[in-house]
């Protein structure tokens, strides 16, 4: 795996992507949109764990396949080309997505608590 710059490097990259306007919440993506998950964060108790358990984890690739016919809700999202999950826009907004080809911001294989951007 490339991008062994440690936590500072990751945070820096993330900041750069955010500033460059290259990140967006999953809930705002349109069908056909692809990207890599940069962060999963939710203020509400169990939503974050629920998302993580369904495979929405930092580093995973996501592709938005479909949305519902009213209010473009819910979304059908394919994770890592393997599993498709339906979720509502509200929850999807807890997932921050960046460009697909940038692996520098992949989560390092550490158990560091602070490796998530805040």
């Amino acid at each position: 795996m490339d991008g062994h710059g440690g936590r500072e490097r990751q945070l820096f990259e993330l900041g750069r992507l955010v500033k460059a306007g290259l990140t967006q919440p999953l809930g705002l993506m349109r069908p056909g949109g692809v990207g890599r998950i940069l962060a999963v964060r939710s203020g509400e108790g169990d939503v974050e764990r629920g998302l993580l358990e369904m495979g929405f984890v930092e580093g995973a690739c996501v592709e938005v396949l479909h949305h519902g016919f009213l209010g473009r809700d819910p979304l059908a999202v394919r994770i890592n080309q393997a599993m498709t999950v339906a979720l509502r826009r509200g929850e999807a907004n807890a997932v921050l997505v960046g460009p697909l080809l940038n692996r520098a911001t992949d989560v390092e294989p550490t158990t560091d608590q602070e490796s998530r951007p805040s």
Binding site: V47, M54, V85, L87, E91
Partner: peptide, 10 residues
């Protein structure tokens, strides 16, 4: 409250 939906589409 409105509850979240998280459902696998097999």
């Amino acid at each position: 409250d409105r509850q979240p939906l998280l459902m696998e589409l097999p």
